[in-house]
Amino acid sequence: MKIAVLGTGGGARAHAARLVELGHEVFASTRDPEATLARTEPDIMGNVPYSQWLADHPGITLKSFGDAAGAADLVINGIDGHNAVAALTAIADRLAGKTLIDYAVPYVYQHDSEHPWPTPWGVMPKLEPCDTDSLAEQIQRALPATKVVKSFVTQEQSTVVDPASVGEGDHTMFVAGDHTDAKQQATDLLTSYGWSDILDLGPLVCARGMEMYAHMHSAIGFSLGQQFGGHFGIKVVR
């Protein structure tokens, strides 16, 4: 399958690398490929320059967001939550009729808070939207011709693509969306990654719960001494 991964951060890199291993034709993507390849310093999260990473992962083609989406059968959104709606709206025609699996968290950084949450790396970002809306729903409204599925967001992406790295894979992944066929595509991809416990939460409105879980995910990670990300899983026992 031809799969586009939108974004060049650590999560997007994890998906791109794993998808190539699984035999897919993978298009990584960024706003400006030339600028991305010209960078010589690690990114804000400490990931090596993308040109270096790309050289170490043959079989991945870097394109612009629009070109990657247009060439793909399935699209994974790893664009940061603050910029996702605008970036995806700009390429809406390339996404029409396709499934878009969204794992972005709608974080707002460097915000003013009356009651800040200190973390080992600074003040916890706030979620916007939350409670009465979700980023996934905003994306779906902006892209009515696209089938949006929310998934992957309750776990670090390095674990999403390799669930067996935690508890031999015995933990739960979630999907939500308004299109049954699109959720099946997401489920099939998760199964190929190695997931055996995949829980369909129902319509896309359930993305609100998944996105708001981001704070709980961080809290668990901090309690385990994991300052960045979290190498653990959650299991729905039923």
Score class of each variant (00 low, 15 high):
G78C: 13
W117M: 03
D112Y: 08
A92I: 04
P118M: 00
T119F: 07
P129C: 03
G81W: 09
I139D: 06
S151C: 13
L127G: 07
E156S: 08
Y107T: 00
E114S: 08
Y107R: 05
D170M: 09
D93S: 12
L135K: 03
V108K: 14
A142R: 02
G169Q: 11
D102I: 07
K98F: 04
L143M: 00
S151Y: 10
Q138G: 03
V105A: 12
S151T: 11
S165H: 03
L100P: 03
E156Y: 01
S151F: 08
Y107Q: 00
T154C: 15
L95V: 07
P118E: 00
I79D: 11
A142Y: 01
Q110D: 12
K126S: 01
H115K: 07
R141P: 01
T146R: 04
C130I: 00
G169R: 14
T132I: 10
T159H: 13
V160D: 02
N83Q: 10
V149A: 13
H111D: 10
E114L: 11
H171N: 11
L88G: 08
E137P: 01
T146A: 12
L143Y: 07
K150Y: 00
A104E: 01
K147H: 08
Y107C: 02
Q138A: 01
Q140T: 01
I139F: 12
E156G: 05
L100E: 03
W121G: 02
V166I: 08
N83S: 14
R94V: 08
R94S: 03
K98P: 08
P118C: 10
R141A: 02
P106W: 10
A90H: 07
M124T: 01
Q110R: 11
T146E: 14
I139E: 09
L143I: 05
L95E: 09
H82V: 11
P118T: 00
L135T: 00
I79S: 09
K126E: 01
K98W: 01
P118W: 09
V166R: 07
G78N: 13
K147D: 00
A84R: 05
I139S: 13
I101Q: 08
V166D: 06
A86I: 09
W121T: 05
G122M: 12
I139W: 11
V166E: 04
L95K: 07
G81S: 12
A145I: 06
S151D: 02
S158W: 01
I139C: 06
T132N: 06
